[in-house]
Protein backbone atom coordinates (compact mmCIF):
# COMPACT_ATOMS: atom_id res chain seq x y z
CA UNK A 1 0.00 0.00 0.00
CA UNK A 2 2.73 2.45 0.81
CA UNK A 3 5.17 3.21 -1.86
CA UNK A 4 8.07 2.54 0.45
CA UNK A 5 6.88 -0.93 1.16
CA UNK A 6 6.29 -1.67 -2.48
CA UNK A 7 9.68 -0.51 -3.34
CA UNK A 8 11.09 -2.91 -0.78
CA UNK A 9 8.94 -5.78 -1.92
CA UNK A 10 11.57 -7.55 -4.01
CA UNK A 11 13.98 -7.43 -1.12
CA UNK A 12 11.37 -8.62 1.32
CA UNK A 13 10.42 -11.54 -0.82
CA UNK A 14 13.84 -12.71 -1.74
CA UNK A 15 15.14 -13.17 1.77
CA UNK A 16 12.45 -15.40 3.25
CA UNK A 17 12.56 -17.26 0.04
CA UNK A 18 16.25 -17.80 0.27
CA UNK A 19 16.02 -18.68 3.92
CA UNK A 20 13.16 -21.09 3.57
CA UNK A 21 14.48 -22.92 0.58
CA UNK A 22 12.04 -25.70 -0.18
CA UNK A 23 10.44 -25.58 3.25
CA UNK A 24 7.64 -23.28 2.17
CA UNK A 25 6.16 -25.82 -0.21
CA UNK A 26 5.26 -27.99 2.77
CA UNK A 27 2.63 -25.56 4.01
CA UNK A 28 0.84 -25.03 0.72
CA UNK A 29 -2.04 -27.26 1.73
CA UNK A 30 -2.49 -25.66 5.10
CA UNK A 31 -6.08 -24.40 5.46
CA UNK A 32 -5.29 -21.78 8.09
CA UNK A 33 -2.60 -20.14 6.06
CA UNK A 34 -3.50 -20.05 2.39
CA UNK A 35 -0.89 -17.46 1.68
CA UNK A 36 2.78 -18.31 1.36
CA UNK A 37 5.51 -15.77 1.06
CA UNK A 38 5.68 -16.45 -2.65
CA UNK A 39 1.99 -15.87 -3.18
CA UNK A 40 2.14 -12.68 -1.21
CA UNK A 41 5.11 -11.57 -3.24
CA UNK A 42 3.27 -12.35 -6.43
CA UNK A 43 0.31 -10.37 -5.22
CA UNK A 44 2.48 -7.37 -4.38
CA UNK A 45 4.17 -7.72 -7.70
CA UNK A 46 0.84 -7.55 -9.46
CA UNK A 47 0.11 -4.30 -7.71
CA UNK A 48 3.32 -2.83 -8.99
CA UNK A 49 2.88 -0.66 -12.03
CA UNK A 50 4.08 -2.23 -15.28
CA UNK A 51 7.76 -2.04 -16.15
CA UNK A 52 8.79 0.67 -18.51
CA UNK A 53 10.96 -1.45 -20.75
CA UNK A 54 14.58 -0.88 -21.72
CA UNK A 55 13.97 2.51 -23.28
CA UNK A 56 13.44 4.09 -19.85
CA UNK A 57 16.96 3.36 -18.73
CA UNK A 58 18.34 4.56 -22.04
CA UNK A 59 16.45 7.82 -21.63
CA UNK A 60 17.60 8.20 -18.04
CA UNK A 61 21.17 7.45 -19.07
CA UNK A 62 21.08 10.01 -21.86
CA UNK A 63 19.70 12.70 -19.56
CA UNK A 64 22.28 12.11 -16.83
CA UNK A 65 25.06 11.84 -19.41
CA UNK A 66 24.07 15.21 -20.83
CA UNK A 67 23.98 16.62 -17.30
CA UNK A 68 27.47 15.28 -16.75
CA UNK A 69 28.77 16.79 -19.96
CA UNK A 70 27.16 20.14 -19.16
CA UNK A 71 28.75 19.94 -15.70
CA UNK A 72 32.16 19.30 -17.26
CA UNK A 73 31.78 22.26 -19.60
CA UNK A 74 30.70 24.63 -16.83
CA UNK A 75 33.40 23.42 -14.47
CA UNK A 76 36.06 24.02 -17.11
CA UNK A 77 34.84 27.59 -17.53
CA UNK A 78 35.25 28.15 -13.77
CA UNK A 79 38.91 27.27 -13.92
CA UNK A 80 40.51 24.04 -12.76
CA UNK A 81 43.80 25.07 -11.22
CA UNK A 82 46.34 22.52 -10.10
CA UNK A 83 46.00 19.78 -7.46
CA UNK A 84 48.04 21.95 -5.06
CA UNK A 85 46.01 25.07 -5.75
CA UNK A 86 42.63 23.87 -7.01
CA UNK A 87 40.31 26.46 -8.49
CA UNK A 88 36.54 26.50 -8.07
CA UNK A 89 35.96 24.18 -11.01
CA UNK A 90 38.16 21.26 -9.96
CA UNK A 91 35.73 19.43 -7.68
CA UNK A 92 32.62 19.82 -9.87
CA UNK A 93 34.73 18.65 -12.81
CA UNK A 94 35.62 15.41 -11.04
CA UNK A 95 32.00 14.71 -10.08
CA UNK A 96 30.69 15.58 -13.54
CA UNK A 97 33.20 13.20 -15.10
CA UNK A 98 32.14 10.38 -12.75
CA UNK A 99 28.53 11.09 -13.62
CA UNK A 100 29.14 11.11 -17.36
CA UNK A 101 31.14 7.87 -17.24
CA UNK A 102 28.56 6.06 -15.12
CA UNK A 103 25.76 7.29 -17.39
CA UNK A 104 27.50 5.70 -20.32
CA UNK A 105 27.86 2.54 -18.23
CA UNK A 106 24.13 2.66 -17.58
CA UNK A 107 23.49 2.99 -21.31
CA UNK A 108 25.69 0.03 -22.06
CA UNK A 109 24.86 -2.39 -19.25
CA UNK A 110 21.63 -1.17 -17.69
CA UNK A 111 19.31 -1.61 -20.62
CA UNK A 112 18.19 -5.08 -19.59
CA UNK A 113 17.32 -4.05 -16.05
CA UNK A 114 13.61 -3.45 -15.75
CA UNK A 115 13.54 -1.29 -12.66
CA UNK A 116 11.76 1.69 -14.16
CA UNK A 117 8.00 2.09 -14.14
CA UNK A 118 5.95 2.86 -17.21
CA UNK A 119 3.98 6.07 -17.37
CA UNK A 120 0.27 5.50 -17.67
CA UNK A 121 -2.84 7.59 -18.03
CA UNK A 122 -2.82 8.10 -14.26
CA UNK A 123 0.53 9.85 -14.64
CA UNK A 124 -1.52 12.69 -16.09
CA UNK A 125 -2.97 13.12 -12.61
CA UNK A 126 0.53 13.83 -11.36
CA UNK A 127 1.05 16.37 -14.12
CA UNK A 128 -2.25 18.01 -13.19
CA UNK A 129 -1.19 18.01 -9.54
CA UNK A 130 2.10 19.70 -10.38
CA UNK A 131 0.18 22.20 -12.51
CA UNK A 132 -1.95 23.20 -9.53
CA UNK A 133 1.18 23.66 -7.42
CA UNK A 134 2.72 25.96 -10.01
CA UNK A 135 -0.52 27.93 -10.21
CA UNK A 136 -0.55 28.11 -6.43
CA UNK A 137 2.86 29.74 -6.24
CA UNK A 138 2.14 32.10 -9.13
CA UNK A 139 -0.95 33.61 -7.52
CA UNK A 140 0.09 33.45 -3.85
CA UNK A 141 2.06 36.68 -4.16
CA UNK A 142 -0.84 38.51 -5.80
CA UNK A 143 -3.84 37.35 -3.85
CA UNK A 144 -2.45 35.96 -0.63
CA UNK A 145 -2.54 32.27 0.21
CA UNK A 146 -6.21 31.82 1.17
CA UNK A 147 -7.89 31.61 -2.24
CA UNK A 148 -5.21 29.43 -3.87
CA UNK A 149 -5.27 27.15 -0.83
CA UNK A 150 -9.02 26.73 -1.10
CA UNK A 151 -8.85 26.04 -4.83
CA UNK A 152 -5.90 23.67 -4.58
CA UNK A 153 -7.47 21.60 -1.82
CA UNK A 154 -10.75 21.46 -3.68
CA UNK A 155 -9.10 20.39 -6.92
CA UNK A 156 -7.04 17.68 -5.24
CA UNK A 157 -10.04 16.34 -3.34
CA UNK A 158 -12.59 16.44 -6.12
CA UNK A 159 -10.56 15.66 -9.22
CA UNK A 160 -7.44 13.85 -8.04
CA UNK A 161 -8.97 12.18 -5.00
CA UNK A 162 -12.45 11.52 -6.48
CA UNK A 163 -14.19 12.66 -3.32
CA UNK A 164 -17.82 13.76 -3.56
CA UNK A 165 -18.66 17.38 -4.40
CA UNK A 166 -20.12 17.94 -0.97
CA UNK A 167 -17.17 16.44 0.83
CA UNK A 168 -14.70 18.37 -1.34
CA UNK A 169 -16.33 21.74 -0.78
CA UNK A 170 -16.72 21.19 2.94
CA UNK A 171 -13.23 19.83 3.49
CA UNK A 172 -11.44 22.45 1.43
CA UNK A 173 -13.17 25.20 3.41
CA UNK A 174 -12.17 23.55 6.69
CA UNK A 175 -8.58 23.02 5.56
CA UNK A 176 -8.22 26.63 4.44
CA UNK A 177 -9.59 27.91 7.72
CA UNK A 178 -7.28 25.61 9.66
CA UNK A 179 -4.24 26.84 7.74
CA UNK A 180 -5.28 30.44 8.27
CA UNK A 181 -5.64 29.90 12.00
CA UNK A 182 -2.36 28.04 12.25
CA UNK A 183 -0.07 30.15 10.13
CA UNK A 184 -1.56 33.64 10.29
CA UNK A 185 -3.32 33.82 13.65
CA UNK A 186 -1.32 31.45 15.81
CA UNK A 187 2.19 31.51 14.32
CA UNK A 188 2.09 35.01 12.75
CA UNK A 189 4.10 33.77 9.79
CA UNK A 190 4.67 36.67 7.35
CA UNK A 191 3.17 34.73 4.47
CA UNK A 192 1.19 36.79 1.95
CA UNK A 193 -2.42 36.74 3.10
CA UNK A 194 -5.54 38.54 1.99
CA UNK A 195 -7.48 38.85 5.22
Amino acid sequence: MTSSSRQEAPLGTSTPHAASGTGSSAIEADPVEPLTAEQLAAEWDEERPPHAGPLANVAAGVVTALLGVAGVAMSLSMGIGTPERPEAGMWPLIISLVMAVLSVALLLFGRKTLDAEAFSSSSLQVAAGVGTLIGFVLVIGLTGFEIPTLLLTFFWLRFLGKETWRMSILLSAIVTAAFYLTFVVALSVPIPHLF
Binding site: L133, L152, T153, W156, L157, G161, V175, F179, L187, V189
Partner: peptide, 19 residues
Protein backbone atom coordinates in the same frame (compact mmCIF):
# COMPACT_ATOMS: atom_id res chain seq x y z
CA UNK B 1 -8.47 8.08 3.01
CA UNK B 2 -5.18 8.95 1.38
CA UNK B 3 -7.08 11.26 -0.97
CA UNK B 4 -7.90 13.54 1.92
CA UNK B 5 -4.43 13.56 3.38
CA UNK B 6 -2.70 14.37 0.10
CA UNK B 7 -3.76 18.03 -0.33
CA UNK B 8 -3.17 18.72 3.34
CA UNK B 9 0.37 17.37 3.29
CA UNK B 10 1.07 19.22 0.05
CA UNK B 11 -0.01 22.51 1.58
CA UNK B 12 1.96 21.89 4.76
CA UNK B 13 4.98 21.28 2.55
CA UNK B 14 4.57 24.41 0.44
CA UNK B 15 3.67 26.82 3.21
CA UNK B 16 6.06 25.16 5.63
CA UNK B 17 9.07 25.66 3.40
CA UNK B 18 8.12 29.28 2.87
CA UNK B 19 8.19 29.94 6.59
Amino acid sequence: RAAILAPITVLITLIGVYT
